[in-house]
Design a protein around this nucleic acid. Sequence first.
DNA 1: ACAGATGATAACTCTCAGGTTAATTAACTT
DNA 2: AAGTTAATTAACCTGAGAGTTATCATCTGT
Lengths: 111, 111
Amino acid sequence: MDATSRAFTALADPTRRALIARLIEGEAQFTELASPFAMSKPAVVKHLRALEAAGLVERLGTKARPVYRFLPHGLVAPLDWIEQHRRLWEENLDSFATYARSLTDQEGGTA
Amino acid sequence: MDATSRAFTALADPTRRALIARLIEGEAQFTELASPFAMSKPAVVKHLRALEAAGLVERLGTKARPVYRFLPHGLVAPLDWIEQHRRLWEENLDSFATYARSLTDQEGGTA
DNA sequence: ACAGATGATAACTCTCAGGTTAATTAACTT
DNA sequence: AAGTTAATTAACCTGAGAGTTATCATCTGT
């Protein structure tokens, strides 16, 4: 699976988006990260692993009491994809407008 | 499922991203949309349904020979989410920098 | 009217994501 | 060193996603 797909997949889950939102406030231990959610702790662990795999989060400190940190670079791939395609869309609109105008100018009539 | 999750889910699949990229070039019928892909036609139909459900694509014209069109508004929700959280991250960095500077200024030492 | 092509649906398989409980590991505390 | 707690891993269940083939419906052209 490519990096862009992994990033979009990671962001597709509301629990994972909430974890990111929390980590933007600052680093946190697992217990604090898991506390807002109704689900079991292993479920939260899996979400954190998905975020790690997508490069959105890293684990620091000891193995038994790690601290989780947000990695903003993980947002670059999905952001770039969306912005590039929005730009392509706008350019396409421009070129269509230019084309339509050239028709109008040359032939003096609407289709 | 909320709209943001649907949009990110739709964008998580490379086939669906390729369909969007094609539709940005202009409207297209089903056969043309499906032709670049190795998979069967029903598989492409399902991807198009996912894009419709996410508000990224609409179907126009007759039911039997529809034309598919890209809907740029479908990119708004995921783009907003990413940009908002990137902004929050930057503000958080700023506030941390401000806080750290205030400590340095007042107490004249590094922690 | 009917033959061919186009697009969609039905029904099925298979894999994987997201959840559970129970067991395990690793660090602190005393 | 023994016990406690925090975090993870193991093993399992279930449902949804992505694909298949076969069938059906609807236009189009002659």
